Lab assay of single mutants.
Amino acid sequence: PDLGLTQLFADPNLIENLKKNPKTSEMMKDPQLVAKLIGYKQNPQAIGQDLFTDPRLMTIMATLMGVDL
Rank of each mutant, 00 (worst) to 15 (best):
G48I: 13
Y40K: 00
I38V: 08
Q7W: 06
M27V: 05
P12R: 04
L51I: 14
L33W: 04
L5R: 04
M28K: 00
D50Y: 03
G39P: 01
T53A: 11
M28W: 01
Q45G: 12
T63H: 10
K19C: 08
M58P: 09
E26K: 05
K19M: 14
L57F: 09
R56D: 09
P12G: 06
P31I: 07
N17Y: 13
P22A: 07
G66T: 10
Y40H: 03
Q49W: 06
D11Q: 07
E26F: 07
I47R: 01
I15K: 01
L14M: 14
I15Y: 03
K20H: 10
I38N: 12
R56E: 05
P55F: 08
M65N: 07
T59P: 03
L18E: 00
I47F: 15
K23L: 11
D50V: 05
K29P: 00
N21I: 04
G48Y: 15
G66C: 08
L64G: 02
F52I: 14
Q32R: 08
L57R: 00
P31Q: 11
A62E: 14
Q32I: 13
Q45A: 12
P22L: 06
G39D: 12
P55L: 07
G39H: 14
M65F: 07
L18P: 00
L69A: 13
L64H: 03
L18V: 01
A62S: 15
T53C: 05
E26P: 07
A62G: 11
Q45M: 12
I60P: 00
L3D: 06
F52T: 13
M61T: 06
S25N: 15
N21F: 06
M58L: 14
D68F: 02
T6H: 12
P12I: 06
S25D: 04
V67K: 02
M61L: 13
L5K: 06
F9G: 02
T59N: 07
N43T: 06
L57E: 01
I60E: 00
Q49L: 11
Q7E: 14
F52P: 13
Q45S: 15
A10Q: 14
R56S: 05
M65R: 12
F9K: 01
L51Y: 10
K19S: 11
D68W: 01
D2V: 15
G48P: 10
Q42F: 12
M58N: 09
Q42C: 07
N13L: 08
T6Q: 13
I38F: 07
N13H: 12
L5S: 07
A62M: 09
P31A: 09
Y40R: 00
V34E: 06
I38D: 08
V34R: 03
M65L: 14
P22T: 04
N21Y: 06
P44G: 06
N43K: 03
P12D: 08
A10V: 07
G48D: 09
D30E: 03
T24A: 03
T53H: 08
L37Y: 00
K19W: 05
P55S: 10
M65C: 07
V34I: 10
M58S: 11
A35R: 08
D68H: 05
P1R: 01
G66V: 07
K29G: 06
L8I: 13
M61D: 00
K29M: 09
N17V: 11
S25Q: 12
K29F: 04
